[in-house]
Design a protein around this nucleic acid. Sequence first.
DNA 1: CTAATTCTGTATCGAACGTTACAGATATGG
DNA 2: CCATATCTGTAACGTTCGATACAGAATTAG
Lengths: 199, 199
Amino acid sequence: MKAGRPRSFCTDTVLDRAMTVFWRKGYEGASLHDLTEAMGINPPSLYAAFGNKEGLFRAVIERYDARRQELMDRVVSAPDPRSAARLFLEGVADFSADTGGRHPPGCFLVQSGLSCSDADIPQALAEHRAEKERALRGRFERDRKEGLLPEGANPATLASYLVTMANGMCIQASAGATTKQLREIADVALSAWPGMPGK
Amino acid sequence: MKAGRPRSFCTDTVLDRAMTVFWRKGYEGASLHDLTEAMGINPPSLYAAFGNKEGLFRAVIERYDARRQELMDRVVSAPDPRSAARLFLEGVADFSADTGGRHPPGCFLVQSGLSCSDADIPQALAEHRAEKERALRGRFERDRKEGLLPEGANPATLASYLVTMANGMCIQASAGATTKQLREIADVALSAWPGMPGK
DNA sequence: CTAATTCTGTATCGAACGTTACAGATATGG
DNA sequence: CCATATCTGTAACGTTCGATACAGAATTAG
């Protein structure tokens, strides 16, 4: 075991608290004072653990991704593409509006820094959003090879359609939309899903 | 005519330049230095004309709305609801990705301040986005009374669906999506549009 | 027990923030 | 042509920003 005074805080716990601040105020709106106060630690501890504000932010992104991975796993392993699409959009409708008061409504990857003085932040968020789109596209490409999607369907476009819808739903949620309203929107969106002929 | 030294700048011109800065860097990421430099004026001129940073931002929102009003007018006065939906989404696909280099891709009302230290900013933007949703809903409510939409169609949900899609498309555009890609997404979205029986 | 190591709290750093005081410039009204 | 009014540029205001220097506390290694 390594020497030295042990860390007095749990990394995941302080990341969760920092997430809430970045989420509500945005990357630039979240001051170090806001962050350290919410995390319950002092600046030197923060800098020792995460390097700087951007390092903390990137650690929060990873933590957020880990939280959302469970939904993506369920989506990718759904029995058929239509179920995958439904699980995805209904999952987004649920977590983005029904937060249990633990964080703001919406999606961290959408709200915390779409535009920023430092362009690295929007780019980092965009890459993590694109990762979800790739996961969906990979799933739908396999589906089409297996004949679960019609010949004319474009897996990339379908994946893009779903994440576009999801991101839009998160914006609606951030402005106060309820889970019920989001589910109605998701229902309309899913009625666009290509059906297999004869099914 | 009123006395005093005349203003040396055109209000609309400097608002357009401020819009670009707020759009690219966000409300909090845009410093007064960034703004005055882009606008070509000095701080006292800015404060005399717009009060403060938030006043300037709200003036920019109005200017942005005026720019977008033409599209909304065309959408609301389209011959039938399906055409309105198509005009709306294709219009968004066009202006959000094809900017002519004059401003960042996407939508000002989405990118410039979803999350903010001062919660008034996200709220002001949300209200202006909601205004578009109301215009669409009003249009679709009239359509349903006139029998241009099926009985089961919910005008509020359809309007919400369209702005959700539009906002999502703007996020895709801000991350680099092309007009072509956005139009393909819009095509999928429009295939969800309710058809009149027998048409 | 001592030396070495790592974390913690206090207190503060220079830089950048939004904002404004002030004096000079430029117009109109009489 | 003078008084009044408004705008302009310079220069600076107090505050807050992200980030650290430093000394003391708490641990392990030997």
